[in-house]
């Protein structure tokens, strides 16, 4: 479904992504693990096209020069030059790191803004679905998103991304700063979303333990390079990986 080949991203001379290739098939959950600054977010920005927007803005300001190379094909279509909102229209929706909800809008309005590309019917159905997988949101619909706790924000953010009717959902560090209980809720929801919506999901995380049970395939990144990949079990069985990413 999504194939990325030879992705390279430079911030000025700093190599942020070094020749990353990644596959995500129909209805798969793919994990990308790595420490801070391994390039996970850059990878997500590159897949979603936000990097192009960054590049244009930096150039305007006379700031950093960002160079992006490599090929991304989505459903057989070359998309590496496509701007982010167009990629979203094809079905690649990023749920960004730190959630980035619209803070002054209520949760309901966040969800409705998310439904920008959806038809009325899709919007209604998805809203029901979001409340079904995240029941706590029901009570919070009228509250400004800026006043939610981290876990509540994450549920709202995933809900908002679902409202955009993704075919490929990119989740950038969805567990960041969440309590173990909320981590459980979010991971359970991700699993259910894949089963119910038949979509593909790429999820990044620093710490692989809570995510590994639900992924079909995973990549490990270090300093912008892909160092290893394999199914969840293969990575679990690898002693080096185990020490670095699962905590012994």
């Amino acid at each position: 479904m999504l194939a990325a080949d030879g992705l390279m991203v430079f911030y000025e001379n700093m190599l942020a992504l070094n020749n990353i290739s990644l596959r995500c098939h129909e209805n798969q959950i793919v994990g990308v693990f790595g420490a801070n600054s391994a390039g996970k977010s850059t990878l997500m920005y590159t897949l979603s096209g936000i990097i192009l927007d960054q590049k244009i803005k930096e150039k305007m300001r006379g700031g950093e020069q960002i160079t992006v190379m490599g090929e991304i094909t989505f459903e057989g279509r070359e998309i590496s030059g496509l701007r982010p909102h167009l990629r979203a229209r094809l079905g690649i929706v990023l749920c960004p790191e730190r959630r980035r909800l619209f803070p002054e809008s209520s949760v309901m309005e966040n969800l409705k803004i998310g439904a920008y590309m959806a038809t009325r019917q899709e919007s209604r159905d998805t809203l029901d679905y979001v409340l079904e997988i995240f029941p706590p949101l029901e009570k919070l619909l009228r509250r400004p998103a800026g006043f939610l706790s981290g876990g509540e924000q994450q549920m709202a953010a995933i809900g908002r991304a679902l409202m955009a009717q993704p075919k490929l959902l990119l989740l950038d560090e969805p567990l960041l700063g969440l309590s173990p209980a909320y981590q459980q809720v979010v991971m359970e929801a991700v699993k259910r979303i894949r089963e119910a919506k038949k979509i593909s999901i790429i999820v990044t995380e620093q710490y692989a333990r809570p995510v590994i049970p639900i992924v079909d395939y995973a990549y490990i990144m270090e300093n912008g390079s892909g160092v290893m990949s394999g199914s969840g079990q293969e990575l679990l069985d690898n002693p080096d990986v185990k020490a670095a990413y699962f905590g012994v």
């Binding site: 936000i50 929706v93 909800l101 309005e109 803004i113 991304a161």
Partner: peptide
Amino acid sequence: TRTGRALRGIAQDERAAMMLGIDS
């Protein structure tokens, strides 16, 4: 309205809005 909400979204966080398919 859908378009009006898009304006609300882009006003608060341009990039987050882009990720949802809103053209800045």
